[in-house]
């Protein structure tokens, strides 16, 4: 499944990094602690979080994540969005809370 597929199926807003919408997704990780994601997420995963600052892009880039989804309608800070465009790693946004969104993404990816 590609990032574009989950954008369509989960009704996500593409905030930045649209060049990376063809990235392949191999799983997901939900956490708001950066060291937790750094230590436990794997490459090509989608990261679900409420953190919106630039450091989420440092993590996404170093871990080679497929995309970041911000919950509850949050939008990335300007420098985070800029870095997302540079790296080609999309930042997406959902109106839902982490619990619901994680459940739906889990369902999609297990099919």
């Amino acid at each position: 499944m590609k990032v574009q597929d989950i954008v369509d199926k989960l009704g996500l807003k593409v905030c930045s990094g649209s060049a990376g919408l063809n990235r392949e997704i191999e799983g997901g990780y939900t956490s708001d602690l950066l060291s937790d994601v750094m230590g436990n997420a794997d490459e090509n995963q989608v990261w679900i979080t409420l953190q919106t600052h630039k450091n989420i892009m440092a993590i996404a880039s170093l871990k080679e994540l497929a995309a970041i989804i911000l919950v509850k309608g949050y939008e990335p800070e300007a420098d985070a969005a800029e870095q997302s465009n540079v790296e080609g790693i999309p930042i997406l946004s959902s109106e839902e809370e982490a619990f619901e969104l994680t459940g739906k993404l889990f369902d999609l990816l297990k099919k």
Partner: peptide
């Protein structure tokens, strides 16, 4: 608040 400072940094370094 930024999601740092969870006391996982040094243990992560040791593990990796």
């Amino acid at each position: 608040e930024m999601g740092f400072g969870a006391g996982m940094g040094l243990p992560n370094i040791k593990k990796n």
